[in-house]
């Protein structure tokens, strides 16, 4: 047997791939579903927190900053293990899927809050003054004048962060969420063959490479500043 044949047998084994393809494709659906939920919930929550912080109510702002700092400082895997193994012992059992969703959503929200807040503070003071001088209230100015500009300014870093955190859905495999990685490692240990792992890697690249390339484009497009 040639070296190539051995390689193909181990990493591109058609028989093994065919047997485990359905379960791995099921994992794709889990990964995509989780990613979408996390992106939507995390960005909405983070933006809402950044807006709340704009009201500069001292105790509230402090809480928001502490939340954002803690979730930006801690490795998500630490929080995932804490949530998954710790919570049931205090009578609060969440499914692995729910734990992963909650932790990664909060993590993305923390980063989003920080990024959007930077955008809000970078919006020129004159924009606030112009809007307020026409009789618009604080909230109206925030929503219709400042936030649209802030969000535009931070789209590139926000996109990068969202991609990085949705990729972390792979951490779910550690606590048994049946995502791509989990299905692939299971298939690998049953079949004693590395093909499922290569397939999983290819699927991740297929899912995330377009996003990575799109974020590169976004960065180039948003490089201008008026």
């Amino acid at each position: 047997m040639s070296a190539w044949d051995r390689f193909a047998e181990t990493f591109l084994n058609g028989e093994v791939l065919a047997r485990y393809l359905p379960s791995i494709l099921g994992g794709v659906w889990v990964t995509v579903e989780l990613s979408l939920l996390i992106v939507v919930a995390g960005i909405l929550l983070g933006t809402a927190l950044a807006c709340l912080r704009a009201y500069r109510i001292a105790p509230l702002s402090l809480l928001i900053v502490v939340f954002a700092d803690v979730f930006r400082s801690l490795p998500p895997l630490v929080l995932i293990l804490m949530g998954y193994f710790g919570l049931p012992n205090v009578g609060f059992t969440l499914s692995a899927f729910a734990v992963l969703f909650v932790i990664l959503t909060l993590t993305l929200a923390a980063f989003t809050e920080e990024i959007v807040w930077a955008g809000i503070t970078a919006t020129p003071k004159g924009q606030w003054e112009a809007a307020r001088s026409t009789g618009m209230g604080f909230s109206q100015t925030l929503v219709w004048v400042v936030l649209p500009q802030a969000v535009r300014m931070v789209i590139p870093p926000l996109t990068n962060r969202a991609i990085a955190i949705t990729k972390m859905t792979a951490l779910g495999s550690v606590i048994g969420v049946p995502d791509i990685l989990n299905q692939a490692t299971t298939a690998q240990s049953f079949s004693g063959n590395a093909s499922p792992l290569l397939l999983a890697s290819a699927l991740y690249v297929l899912l995330f490479l377009p996003l990575v390339i799109a974020s590169r484009r976004l960065e180039a497009r948003f490089a201008w500043r008026t």
Binding site: G126, Q127, A131, S133, T134, G135, R152
Partner: peptide, 27 residues
């Protein structure tokens, strides 16, 4: 009060994300 007092700024302060018409219609 402010809606009855118009103000024009040195640096214009137009909203860059809105076209001229929507700069006017927003308020």
């Amino acid at each position: 009060i402010r809606r009855r007092i118009g103000m024009v700024f040195q640096s214009f302060n137009l909203y860059p994300h809105l076209d001229a018409r929507r700069n006017v219609t927003l308020a």
